[in-house]
Amino acid sequence: MSPLADRGPHRVTVVTGVDRSVVTVTGDMDLDHVDALNSALLGACADPGAPQRVVVDLTRLAFCDSAGLNALLRARALCESNGRSLILVGPGPQFMRLLSITGADLLFNLGVPGPGDAGDGTARATP
């Protein structure tokens, strides 16, 4: 484990609503913390009966390295192969720079959190 691995809470939560699964990432998403993200995204993108829309809430993401980006790229492909959509909401400057440098900004649907897109238990169908 790297010396930076203990810099704060690192958590991945999933809230499943009627029309979307919201995966919220808190803290750093790096090699030391990516397993929880991979697991959450696998369920949201591939579980039978899961909603067709997967929202990844990045508003609480402090840092992301290539391991976190690769998890999101795999999730994008998995969602696509299962007829689901993946949207990243609330990305910060560091993550946007990572996307831009790698060219991945052209691959993802990016947005701002809307009603039900916060991973705080408020996920609900939008009228």
Rank of each mutant, 00 (worst) to 15 (best):
V22H: 03
T24W: 04
S81K: 09
S2E: 04
S39W: 10
D120E: 04
R60E: 14
P113S: 11
D47A: 11
I87H: 10
D120P: 03
A75W: 03
V34S: 08
V112A: 11
D117L: 11
G121M: 05
V55F: 03
G43L: 10
V14N: 07
P48M: 03
A71P: 05
R7Q: 10
G83Q: 04
G17S: 07
T24H: 10
P113R: 12
D65Y: 14
N70W: 00
D65H: 11
A77P: 07
G43D: 09
V56Q: 11
T26W: 02
L4E: 12
L110F: 00
R124E: 08
Q52H: 11
G111E: 05
G92I: 05
R74P: 02
G8A: 06
D30L: 13
L42T: 13
T16A: 10
L86T: 12
G68Y: 12
C79N: 10
D117Y: 09
H10K: 10
H33R: 15
L107F: 04
G17Y: 06
Q94T: 11
C64M: 12
A44I: 10
A123S: 14
H33N: 09
R53S: 09
V25I: 12
A71H: 07
Q94F: 03
G103Q: 06
N38E: 09
A36T: 02
G121Q: 08
T26E: 05
L110H: 08
M96R: 14
D28P: 02
T13E: 09
L110T: 09
Q94S: 15
L4R: 15
A62L: 12
P9C: 07
L58K: 11
R97C: 02
C45G: 06
L99D: 07
P93A: 15
R20V: 01
A75F: 02
R74S: 11
T122G: 15
S66G: 12
A50C: 08
C45I: 04
S21I: 04
L106F: 00
F63D: 10
S81V: 06
C45T: 13
P93M: 11
A125W: 05
R11W: 09
G43C: 07
G114L: 06
A118E: 12
T102N: 09
G111Y: 03
D28E: 13
G103S: 10
L31T: 09
R76D: 08
L73G: 08
G103M: 07
G17F: 02
A67D: 05
D105N: 15
A36N: 02
D28R: 09
R20A: 11
L37Q: 04
M29E: 13
A123K: 07
N38R: 15
L106E: 13
P51K: 14
